[in-house]
Amino acid sequence: MDVTTLAEVTGNIGTVGYGLAAIGPGIGLGILIGKTIEGMARQPEAAGQLRATMFLGVAFVELLALLGIVAGFLFV
């Protein structure tokens, strides 16, 4: 049976996997940073503390995206 190829995509499905893995952390970072900015606007005197805590949270959230990278490479 002849297979007609209309479009061909070559490459690694891991790339798509990483794309999917980046969605969650992307949303998470948005919420996290947005909330921190709200907090800073409400209480500018606490900005330093908020920023430090935000980066801690960012590190946690970003970890998921980083795991996505690692997994993409690990399970090729």
């Binding site: 690692v70 490479f73 690990l74």
Partner: peptide, 10 residues
């Protein structure tokens, strides 16, 4: 000698 794999980055 060896091909570069993606994992080599890590």
């Amino acid at each position: 000698d060896s091909a570069v794999e993606g994992i080599d980055l890590l």
